[in-house]
Amino acid sequence: MAMPVSYYLRTSKMPHIWCAGCGHGIVLGAVLRAIDSLGLDKDQVCVVSGIGCASRAPGYLDFNTLHTTHGRAIAFATGIKMVKPEMKVIVLTGDGDAAAIGGNHLIHAARRNIGIATVCFNNSIYGMTNGQYSPMTPTGSYASTAPYGNIEEPFDLCDLVYAAGASYVARGSAYHAILLWKLIAKAIATDGFSFVEAITQCPTYYGRRNKMRSAVEMLKWQKEHGVTVAGAAKMPAEDLAGKFRIGELGARTRPEYTRRYAAIIDAAQRGEGGERDA
């Protein structure tokens, strides 16, 4: 039964902290609609975040919420999932939080395929600290720490996480909010590690420094540059330049980590295995 988004909010904490036109609220809406469409019990949902604009999201959500240290949300979440595998553990993180300082935890959680759904609010900038470039900032873009233009290449974060072993990887955008909602729902429903990159806009820092004055303009950019996986397959390579693929990018079935560990506990308690080193 569809509940209004506000059912999942700590409304006394609203309005939220994000700037006018920031895409994070749109992505958060997709997250909450995804949780609603899965009919999850609030008491069994744990939302963990690191540090940054996106990481302020859990404070507004009526679940078990944890706002951790920069880049470490997935590692904290691993501890929670290991102790309470029956809980739905969701990590909300930004592009800097997940792909820069948090990169090691991201790829290892994917490698282990532990049941954590991670949503990366990718606005290609460090917003909380006033606009530095991040590992997801396009080459040539301007930022407070790239006054001559960014000379680095961004990750393809979805490819990276899928190559590391994740069970489900997808990309959506704030503009494609309904698709994003469906992708996030599928990610949360995935047994193993799932990852959704949500392209979103930061008008205040990324937009202002890169000639996109308004959130509306940035959403239009997302509309014009988001290409479905099927659509992209039919397009010649040169047309794909500067575009980003949206939709489900990778799915596989791999045993989920806490289930594998549960088998170890069963064996150990039957007295099997557990050889000391030779």
Binding site: A75, F76, T78, G79, I80, V83, N104, H105, Y261, A268
Partner: peptide, 27 residues
């Protein structure tokens, strides 16, 4: 595992302290 407890070798030292704080919050 014999006691129904859980062990994990994390990817680094910071992940380890982070994981035990999460585990403690879970009880």
């Amino acid at each position: 595992p014999k006691a129904g407890g859980k062990f994990i070798q994390m990817e680094d030292e910071i992940a380890s302290i982070s994981a035990i704080i999460g585990a403690s919050l879970a009880g």
